[in-house]
Simulated scan of single mutants.
Amino acid sequence: MPQTKESDNNRRSRRGSGAITLRDVAKLAGVAPITASRVLNTPEAVSVDVRQKVLDAVQKTGYVPNRMAGGLASSRSRLIAAVVPSTVMSVFMETIESLNGTLFDAGYQLMLGQSSYSASREESLLEAIIGRRPDGIFLTGILHSNKGRTRLLASGIPVVETWDLTPAPIDMLVGFSHADIGRDVAKYLLSKGRRRLAMIRADDERADRRAKAFAGEVAQSGLVDVPVRVINVGASRSIRSGRDALGQLLELDPAVDAVFCSSDLLASGVVTEARVRGIDVPGRLSIIGFGDAPFVADMEPALSTVHINGADIGRIAAQRLIDRAEGREVLERVVDVGYSIVERDTT
């Protein structure tokens, strides 16, 4: 009986199926598997021409050698690898804790790597992770290099991307729309009567999408006469950066009356600088952050922010990776956990 597309998808959903092997590389290069192995392990023992053919095949297929012992390659490692941008005062901590707890309760261990918002560092981490063949890989965000994406697809390892949405995930996805957040925060501030809006943001792609959607919504509203001012603080996400950014913003537009920050730390800096300058918050200036970090509700004034249910993201992602590792089919590959705007004293 011919195999249907649906049955083929089911077959590929099982852990390890569809993975590119050394035999596939050898076939593409037109050499024996043992020759391909020599190229990867003892390249000096192979001619330059043959070596190049095999390396070209590796590049085309995205193959990453299995660093585990050959006898263990078909066994489950009970290890899940995660790559996150940051772990220091991080909005991702709730997700990491929930991910780790759910995995631990199911008998799995979590291996954590920090990319520091660097695409090149993320790529290096992924190469090291794939080579060790964990039972699953947890990623923060969806924008990975073409090389990294090719390697992930070629590995056959279950992957869950998080903290974002895309119609074309690598495998599974648990997240929310950053563009929708930008638009909804703009609508919220406009509904409060604010007419000179600004954004203070760090230099990362997800913050960029929130900023563009925020500015676009303000422009389309027809309620303001000036464009949204945007201060980019680069890689820094500190309270000091927020303080400095508000100073820059006030030089550009002394009449600014609302600021959307790409993180709660930046927003905390803006609140601090506003108080130092004697600016009434929220009477003169509304401030809203992103992430709903545990400390912001206890600030004075308490910070309005965008709440993300990081615990749900970690729990759902962990369960999907466990299901795939144990051969169970995951029917709902994309989960939108949504978000909410939390109104506190600063708005």
Rank of each mutant, 00 (worst) to 15 (best):
Q3A: 10
T4W: 01
T4D: 00
T4P: 01
S7T: 13
R12M: 14
V25W: 01
V25A: 03
V25H: 03
K27M: 11
G30M: 10
I34M: 14
N41P: 04
P43S: 04
E44W: 01
D56Y: 08
K60T: 15
A73D: 04
R76W: 14
S77H: 10
L79P: 07
A82D: 09
S86K: 11
M89P: 06
V91S: 15
E97S: 13
L99G: 03
L99N: 05
L103R: 11
E122I: 07
E127K: 12
I130T: 09
G141L: 03
G156I: 08
I170Y: 08
M172F: 13
D180K: 15
R183K: 14
D184W: 05
A186H: 05
R196S: 02
I200K: 04
D204A: 10
D204R: 11
R206V: 05
R209N: 09
R209D: 11
A211C: 15
G216E: 13
G222C: 06
N232C: 12
G242D: 00
G242Y: 00
R243P: 01
G247N: 00
L252V: 11
P254A: 07
V256G: 00
V256R: 01
D257G: 00
L265M: 11
A267M: 03
G269A: 02
E273R: 00
I279N: 00
R284M: 08
I287W: 04
I287H: 04
G291K: 02
D292H: 12
A293N: 12
P294T: 05
S304A: 15
N309A: 04
Q319W: 07
R320P: 09
R328Y: 09
V337P: 05
Y339V: 05
T346L: 03
T346R: 01
